[in-house]
Design a protein around this nucleic acid. Structure first.
Lengths: 248, 248
DNA sequence: TCTGTCCATTGACTGTCGTCAAGTATAGCA
DNA sequence: TGCTATACTTGACGACAGTCAATGGACAGA
């Protein structure tokens, strides 16, 4: 479902954040026209990555943060033992790499899940700019803080919720992120494999599969491969809160 | 084990970050003498909270971030269902509230686990200051990024590791945080109850208890109540990597 | 010293989910 | 079109940790 992208050349492309349909999601939020120009000066816009290509690699020198323009990205950490832990999925309008700003090297690996267009923000210049633009600085703080919250949410999901609850929560999260982009909230195609879902949610692939079919049998969703249709969103929301209702 | 604190009055107390033994852990890191003064201007220093007192409450208006000076703090989220999810423990030199910078309200509740001294940083002033001091801004980014990484680490622990591995990891984390403050790395007293540990690690209290005694029987630790002695740090490290060794 | 409360420990049993194993779709490619 | 590799699904079984329940200690107040 990766939308075809305008150009295959990078350098002269200054398509600008002004025109970008995501400018309200991504960095530029709450920035003056003038300031937007200055942001554009430092951004490398719309580089294309094919499915499976790495945007950056864990333990390589940290240089930039990246905004997803179209397509989708998976971030993961490789442990000493060699296994992967998926730490997040990033959709258009979302910023990748904020977890790497505390060191000299990237804290994770980012990989395109499909044909993906990416804008690059060199941190050195970005920090310089946020020092001059309080609005932008504030926005950066918000984004990073949001990332912390998301991660706490995830930790909570992992520590307290059943397989069904985790998967329901992920489906709803994806749904709302699709609808923010004015795409269907009930009819979409998962950018990631079952394996990635399982890894992200701390489950075995088999469990993910089983839950999908269980949901399907209950008439809550319809899933064929990566194509998903949410038939009963309320039921899904019920699932995520099931345990809460009992406890309260 | 909260160290007794200097004064019980707050306002005229300008003991200063210069004198603070934690200045290398907390915000001031990498700041010029001059700039430190400016930071001090905005900080409310060393307010005391007793055991169980709230530093801030979830859903109340967000105003400040807080640095722990002595003692310790627990942050937690209360879900709609009414149950608690512990999101972190904060020791001296660590900054609390970074996850709340993305909204108008605190994203969690922070509670003193013992008699605790806290420095308050009003965000409005803090943001103003970081706009002027690139070093400080950079440091803020680092802290927030580190918080994201920590949270990812936690998510990983919760999703992939056994009860023993989780608890070993927590003990080692506490150990290293104690030793950073030049306290014993092998002999300390847990600031939090078993319940909090269980909640934080996504386990039942009973499981935590069982693992503690198992470790004790194996001669890895010695624990009586909250007093803990790490007898065999290497063994603990082995435990945390056990699964990695098998996988790789 | 006694009593009540809170916290920690221990035991028995159950359930969810992981593992192992096999089988079936789907995608990429010659 | 067929081939192969990868992704996904389904089933059987076992283990780890949760739940329920009871006991044991620590501490505060009378």
């Amino acid at each position: 479902m990766a939308q075809a992208i305008h150009l295959h050349q990078v350098s002269p492309l200054k398509a600008s954040c002004h025109q970008c349909s995501l400018s309200n999601l991504c960095l530029p939020l709450a920035i003056e026209e003038n300031d937007l120009d200055r942001l554009e000066d430092i951004v490398q816009q719309g580089k294309i990555y094919n499915r499976g290509e790495h945007i950056f690699d864990q333990s390589t020198p940290f240089k930039s943060c990246f905004a997803v323009k179209s397509g989708s990205v998976k971030t993961s950490i490789i442990t000493e033992g060699g296994d992967e832990q998926v730490t997040g999925f990033f959709m258009p309008g979302e910023l990748v790499g904020l977890d790497s700003m505390s060191g000299d090297h990237y804290a994770c690996t980012a990989k395109a899940l499909e044909r993906t267009s990416i804008c690059e923000f060199p941190v050195e210049k970005l920090e310089e700019l946020t020092g001059k633009l309080p609005e932008l600085q504030h926005h950066m703080y918000r984004l990073m803080s949001q990332e912390i919250q998301n991660s706490h949410q995830l930790a909570m999901l992992l520590s307290k919720n059943t397989a069904e609850e985790r998967i329901a929560a992920l489906l709803l999260s994806l749904s709302s992120r699709f609808s923010r982009r004015r795409m269907s909230a009930t009819n979409f195609s998962l950018p990631m494999a079952r394996n990635d879902i399982a890894n992200f949610l701390g489950l075995a692939v088999e469990t993910v599969s089983r839950v999908f079919t269980r949901f399907q049998n209950q008439g809550i969703i319809r899933a064929r491969g990566r194509e998903v249709e949410l038939l009963d969103v309320e039921a899904l929301q019920m699932v995520t809160r099931e345990f809460a209702k009992q406890g309260g």
